[in-house]
Design a binder for these strands. Structure first.
Lengths: 185, 185
DNA sequence: CTTGCCTATGCAACGAGTTGCATAGCAAGA
DNA sequence: TCTTGCTATGCAACTCGTTGCATAGGCAAG
């Protein structure tokens, strides 16, 4: 289980509330780990109970109060322990691949539309990543070199970019194969 | 939920028992969908109850009897229905990416070993895929062209190959970044 | 002949993840 | 003013996935 650890990393990068975490899980962290606000609130409660994180009530004006969490010493120790033990290669779940193999037993027209839709979604995500890379990891004037944390965030983002590019090329291959098997005039 | 549909596709490609399915989920299907035998037996029971699949007791010599499942008409209809409705882009879970960002708050030496271990695992899987591609999808004499089902299995396998190549290149990038941040003499 | 391994199926308990719903303050616009 | 939408937190019920264990027949090696 790594949701706890993903939260610890995110809180170390910057303390925040459950709501803010759920926003981060829709963008940067969410590129490689998804979680809903339900999961996050539940896990935060458990982590607070276990002493991994500290809470601080933050009154706000113009919006509801929030609880800001930050990592406590036991949480940092737990993260360090997890970082030192091996994780197995991730288990894969690709609905689309199941569908492609299923297309042998069905009319592939609907699948072509579906693959095109996915291709578009991945192209959008790639564009989004590239904007973020340009914004956060380009050194405009040559001053202020990136620190280690930023370098590591950048290499993870480069992984996302490589993944999207690979996926788009593969989906083009899939489309070409489907059209070859099911030519339209 | 798509385990049911992955099982339907696999049983359409070839009927088989729960045990045989669990073997397939360790190889071909398992490249893009993982499942343990527990899940498979449970889902098979439900699918049989719902009339999606038929069972046939097959006595065997030298080994325990098995129940061979095959897809019934309602199962085929359910698969077809699922193939025609859109699926959302898959949710991602990359422990290793969490660890890489976490390395900013810890000694990265252990992470380097971990990344090298993952690189080796992906290289092994790539080699395995390439052997399978050579074995199953190379037309040796020019006769017997591949049918649609094989073409689709091949394009899914090409996706796996592209994924492993991309991942290996990215892990090299990660290793270079880690060594740059933490030079060893 | 005992020990370990492979085929083959399954239960029970738990933990992780999803979905629907509820509440509550404040802001902006119809 | 009423609705819509955003911030902010949470409960309850359910499904999915994992882990540990159990059974049972046959095979091969020591």
């Amino acid at each position: 289980m790594a949701l706890e650890h993903a939260i610890l990393v995110s809180l170390l990068e910057k303390p925040g509330s459950g709501y803010e975490l759920s926003r981060r899980f829709e963008r940067s962290i969410g590129y490689f780990w998804t979680a809903t606000h339900q999961q996050i609130y539940r896990v935060l409660k458990r982590m607070e109970h276990d002493g991994w994180i500290d809470v601080r009530d933050v009154p706000q004006q113009g919006r509801p109060d929030k609880k800001e969490y930050s990592v406590a010493a036991p949480g940092r120790a737990a993260l360090s322990e997890w970082l030192h033990e091996p994780v197995e290669p991730e288990s894969v779940r690709h609905d689309l691949a199941v569908k492609i193999r299923g297309a042998a037993f069905d009319d592939p027209t609907a699948l072509i539309r579906e693959v095109e839709r996915h291709r578009q979604a991945h192209a959008d995500r790639l564009a989004h990543y590239l904007v973020g890379e340009q914004r956060d990891f380009t050194d405009p004037g040559g001053d202020a070199p990136l620190d280690a944390g930023q370098e590591l965030q950048h290499v993870v983002l480069r992984g996302g970019i490589a993944y999207e590019r690979m996926t788009i090329a593969w989906l083009d291959d899939v489309l070409a194969t489907l059209h070859r098997l099911h030519p339209v005039p």
